[in-house]
């Protein structure tokens, strides 16, 4: 499997006003590392507000003006510059956005999905994907506001399919879809991956991720704390590496439904060392001293000194 996308040490910070006039820089994503290979689905799971969507926007060069990004993004081994991403965006790298507001409200969806060109090939392709996602012929003429939440999301997924892309970044593609449709969507991502494309699936729904992904990157407070093969996740506590991932596993309704205390730190006052240390049961003094690097462990990666 050849490496398609590699993100090394990405940090994103925002220039913001605090109460009144003080301007400050807050780091929302810290030293994040992930990689996606051809044929792989990497699921990024984490709670809302952990910076998952920002990662997608960072890769695609869609950050707002007051954001600064550091670190390296490699696409097919070469650095992803601003100019290069502009060429690749939509052609080789496609985004399935989180919100329906990404659709143009004044354009009929069929036209929107196939882009503003009229040729037989494209129309055929668009009709095909509409069929696949249970969007009936009548819906082609509708405007975005006339779609239900689920239909709009399916339309968004169709848009990403139109070009011959290599990397698909799907930002929460399933909320608003019921289980069956969500699974259908994800299976389609699976098919694409099996055909040799890379998929970066950003979601908060671990259950769904476990169903289709190859690897899972666990996000916490703007960084990855663990990257694990799905098979290790299914083994539960023994298979997993990071205390946070173990806590996630134990909190699932089918395994215990136990909640660890505390809350994800606010990005304005992140702990100095390990971001999870305030909630961690095995944390020692060392954990709060300095930043913990990512390290290899049992075929995965973990950001914890004591993980075994």
């Amino acid at each position: 499997m050849s490496k398609l996308l590699e993100v090394i040490d990405m940090s994103i910070s925002f220039k913001m006003y605090e109460k009144g006039f003080r301007q400050s820089y807050t780091q929302v994503i810290n030293n994040l590392c992930i990689k996606v290979s051809r044929g792989e689905i990497l699921a990024i799971v984490g709670s809302s507000g952990s910076g998952k969507s920002l990662l997608a926007h960072g890769i695609l060069g869609l950050l707002p003006n007051n954001a600064t990004m550091t670190g390296k993004i490699l696409y097919e081994g070469k650095g992803l510059t601003e100019k290069r991403i502009e060429e690749l965006r939509g052609k080789k790298i496609a985004l399935v956005p989180q919100s329906v507001t990404y659709l143009d409200p004044l354009m009929r969806i069929a036209k929107q999905v196939r882009g503003n060109v009229k040729n037989e090939e494209r129309i055929r392709k668009q009709k095909e994907s509409f069929r696949r996602y249970d969007l009936c012929e009548n819906s082609e003429k509708l405007f975005p506001y006339q779609l239900s939440g689920g239909m709009a999301r399916r339309a968004l997924i169709c848009t990403a399919e139109q070009e011959d892309v290599d990397l698909i970044i799907a930002d929460e593609p399933t909320p608003g879809l019921d289980i069956e449709l969500a699974m259908k969507t994800l299976r389609y991502f699976r098919e694409l991956a099996d055909k040799g494309k890379g998929v970066l699936l950003i979601t908060h729904d671990i259950d769904l991720a476990l169903n289709v992904a190859d690897n899972i990157a666990v996000f916490y407070a703007g960084t990855t704390v663990e990257i694990t093969p799905v098979s290790d996740f299914l083994k539960g506590e023994e298979g997993l590496r990071h205390p946070y991932t173990k806590a996630l596993f134990n909190a699932m309704p089918q395994n215990g439904f136990k909640a660890v205390k505390g809350y994800q730190p606010y990005y304005k006052d992140l702990p100095k060392g390990c971001l999870y240390s305030p909630r961690c049961t095995i944390a020692k003094e060392e954990c709060s001293k300095s930043k913990i690097p990512m390290r290899q462990l049992r075929g995965g990666m973990v950001r914890c000194i004591y993980a075994t």
Partner: peptide, 14 residues
């Protein structure tokens, strides 16, 4: 709890 992570979900439901 649809949009929440599983830990928050467990905490709230408990």
């Amino acid at each position: 709890s649809t949009m929440l992570d599983v830990i928050t979900q467990a905490q709230i439901w408990n």
